[in-house]
Design a protein around this nucleic acid. Sequence first.
DNA 1: CTGTATTATGCACACGAGTGCAAGACGGGC
DNA 2: GCCCGTCTTGCACTCGTGTGCATAATACAG
Lengths: 357, 357
Amino acid sequence: MAARPVSIHDIARAAGVSHATVSRALRDSPLISAEVRGNIQRLAAEMGYTPNAVAQSLKGQRSNTIGLVVTSIADPFYGRLARGVDEVAKRAGLDVFLGVSYNDEAAELAVIRSFQRRRVDGIITASSRLTDPSLDQLSQLGVPVVLVNQHADVTRHPFHSVQADNAAGARLAVQHLLELGHSAIAYLGAPNRPRSNRQREQGYRAALAAAGIAVQDGFVQQAAPERRSYADDVADGQSLMLAALRTGITAAFCFNDMYAVGALLACRELGIRVPGQVSIVGFDDIELAQYVTPPLTTIHQPKLRLGQLGMELLLDLMEGRPATDQLVPVELVVRCSASRVPAVTVQLAAGPCPAGS
Amino acid sequence: MAARPVSIHDIARAAGVSHATVSRALRDSPLISAEVRGNIQRLAAEMGYTPNAVAQSLKGQRSNTIGLVVTSIADPFYGRLARGVDEVAKRAGLDVFLGVSYNDEAAELAVIRSFQRRRVDGIITASSRLTDPSLDQLSQLGVPVVLVNQHADVTRHPFHSVQADNAAGARLAVQHLLELGHSAIAYLGAPNRPRSNRQREQGYRAALAAAGIAVQDGFVQQAAPERRSYADDVADGQSLMLAALRTGITAAFCFNDMYAVGALLACRELGIRVPGQVSIVGFDDIELAQYVTPPLTTIHQPKLRLGQLGMELLLDLMEGRPATDQLVPVELVVRCSASRVPAVTVQLAAGPCPAGS
DNA sequence: CTGTATTATGCACACGAGTGCAAGACGGGC
DNA sequence: GCCCGTCTTGCACTCGTGTGCATAATACAG
């Protein structure tokens, strides 16, 4: 249908020179006389020449392309993080291939193979739960790989990574609750992200231990490990919170904000006021956190920054520069879902669609 | 650093044949004897051969690649829609280039140029507000273009498109409020999406007209047209709602769910109960809608489906098949933010961090 | 045993751009 | 007039894959 785009051969013919001269002229080579160079560049602009990046990739043995693997494009984390990656990549003249693999191992392998066929110059995987076969595949690719907020345990392979400081974040969250007078604090965990879940639980336990408080039976609630989708997080948080409430807690620290939303729903279901009767702290600080009722007190992860750092690390690796892994600090964001421990304990009531704000 | 990946030449050398034979054998050409073919395919597997898609693109004059333009990767709409696109693209063997252009015209043009250099076979733009220069650029590209939920007015250029039925959705929303007994209904509009805003406002007016109800002064509130970012939507909804509440409305139909969240915040600020005193209906049915308090009654857009349809339409265009634009129906989702009109009018009170659920 | 049909393989070129090397054009010094 | 140096350009090859056409190898009919 559409006519073939103009190539340097077309320009060469129009200018009465060889394509080699055109190539050099367009790259501002000093080998070409100023007169001819100007003439060719003018012609190129007039004819609407756009260099063929495919040919350049083939010749240059480098595609100027990276692959971004996300397990779920619906992950609320993804947006800002991908933007950070994209920003830095664009600035370096790299284009981004998007690869989604909704926690399906076969799809994940397919994405990696596709990147390999495309000869991407590097790969970033974002907040994923890569399985061992995928990691094996990645390590054999021969291109640099950076893991950003990898949720799964990375065994065997020494990949470079950018991670948020999960343990420190968890300590911040629990210390906040301790300062508000709470001592019966639950942890609602997500074992389907083994690594980050373990780190956050460790931070939780460390903070309590430092305050000389024992973790009582039933305070640590873990969801079923095989849960995978994002929608499940809310449901998991909800049921874990229902279980935790039976153990007499006055506060809960949740694996992430979606869990915290589930915990809010559980409280609403039981007619428990948040933060009046029970306090809740989340993790991640996704957009949603500020819009739920009450707005969530949570741990802020600098998602844009994580993406930028990941891409900068990848660039270092691609250029053969020395590269160091990053542990990125996180911050406590105090909103409204946690307050001083109540004097009395919890009562119940129920009802769908409460009067609301 | 990394050794060059194995090519068909390497396999040819190992098998003692020419690269042409290898090429044909790997593509299961009947020209090659079964014996040689099997031998070559075994060798290819052993040597870990991965075809070079760059070379194939150059030779085949087709990159098997499409470009996906999104104005903001943080747009809550984006996730599901992109997944729909990705699903269909993957199934057709196409890889997706991601292009973000946060409503910046220069960045938008840069993205398009980048796609042009990469010789993508088609382009999808998702829920964007493309400006005329970009549209000009797109139309000169010589590749099929599909607009999905284009927010801006498309002048001059007859692009193919997939759109949700904005007018019908607006009518559904307003009819729902009418059935609940409301007659003083506001429309909170977003003129920075001229096309969809106009269609939703028209639907709003049509529903009221059909019920024989006049639109009173101040019932239609429009934000400043230059607002661009996603975070602004909440603030805009909030201030528009404050203005609308002064006109004695009992319900508001909002341009989208983020506006509706802003409207909720406005009510909370004034101590107005939703839906007890004022009803609110949104548009889009983003994830957030079900988690705010009260959960939003809204118009559901089938985002995944929109993405799939957009990609299918693009495939039709790419293959030269007959292609027809799509107007996709939407549905009313009744949750909790709209109820029967109250007997008495509104009172006020205020306070940050209300007790919540 | 020769001529022809059939099958299997290789040669050579193409895709679009980049580049080492050779060579032509030109000027200047002797 | 000759030689050498400088500047400018073209030739020819490369990157990895695909394919039309020629050709070699084999089979088969007469």
